[in-house]
Design a protein around this nucleic acid. Sequence first.
DNA 1: TGCAATAGCGTACACTCTGTTCGTTTTTAT
DNA 2: ATAAAAACGAACAGAGTGTACGCTATTGCA
Lengths: 187, 187
Amino acid sequence: MDRRQQKTRAAIFQAFSALVSEKNYSRITVQEIIDRANVGRTTFYAHFETKEDLLKALCGELFGHILASAQDITHTHGLYSDGSAPESIFCHLLQHLQENDGNILGLLSGESSELFLRHFKDSLRELIRTQFIAQSRKANLNLPRDFLVNHICGNFVEMVLWWIRGGRTQTPAELDRYFRAVIEPVV
Amino acid sequence: MDRRQQKTRAAIFQAFSALVSEKNYSRITVQEIIDRANVGRTTFYAHFETKEDLLKALCGELFGHILASAQDITHTHGLYSDGSAPESIFCHLLQHLQENDGNILGLLSGESSELFLRHFKDSLRELIRTQFIAQSRKANLNLPRDFLVNHICGNFVEMVLWWIRGGRTQTPAELDRYFRAVIEPVV
DNA sequence: TGCAATAGCGTACACTCTGTTCGTTTTTAT
DNA sequence: ATAAAAACGAACAGAGTGTACGCTATTGCA
């Protein structure tokens, strides 16, 4: 990919990302984005069809990274090669979030967090479906499998949102404990 | 309130509600709303400042009803006057939803369900905070109270969404069982 | 019933935002 | 060095927003 394209794309992503953490998505105009990104109008539309297209592309980029790294974790550590328990997927995700790559925390604390959450949930659901559900103790409660997947996914995302909105006063490890407490109560 | 105002308000609500179940909120124009509601442009703006204001008003109306009726339930049946367990708040809410007053199901199955869910959650959180949490078995797991409130609220809303998106093939009683299974596992 | 108050109507308008066109300049890869 | 590709900026049509204004129809009340 042409170096100019990379720069332009990155500049637009960054400008858009900053704007979304500042004000509601619906009130952000293309004009504001290109002003802040310092690119021409024509250039913007050469990269993205609409503002919504930009949103989608940004989500793909952000959540693609995070989820891919979570996939890696399960593949790398899933075999208990050293005898210890593998790091929880969720703990890993939380730590990744805390690093705030690409201003994810900003996006999720802004007014338009729902827009990002939808994408986040969709990606996460897929991960849980394939990687996690087999381990869950609730799998034997005679509940539909897709209900459980949705339940766990929803719980995680709600927790993350609660965490961010509360100023992130808990460590990922603490949060992971909360999460396990509600998801996997010891029977 | 003037009879004309009532009719206008109702017509706008109905038109808007129908549109939201058909297409994305962001792509609905005031023009479409007033065409379908068959009212003049000026009239619309005499009732609502913006489209967003309309959304807010509609949410207030819808969730106000549902939540108020849930409050009643807890006050009426909360005392175990006949010795039997009171009807679950959640079961009651589910039944109420199933009646589809004001096309709530349409709104929650449309593309813009997130917008309504935000309001729904906010109202529900308040209800749970005051009415339900004391009964929860998880209250003694050493978790922050507001975390638990958020958790229960989020679970319920996610379940409702899952239910609607799956074509509502479960009865409220079944759903209530699912919900209790994940929220209140017998220890 | 009659009447003042009020709600609604329709047209028109200024304004903002969108998405595209086109000719020109700059940067890139080779 | 050069041809291809990308970015630029100005300008534009089209759509949507929110307001103003003069007129008509309905309502609540005396």
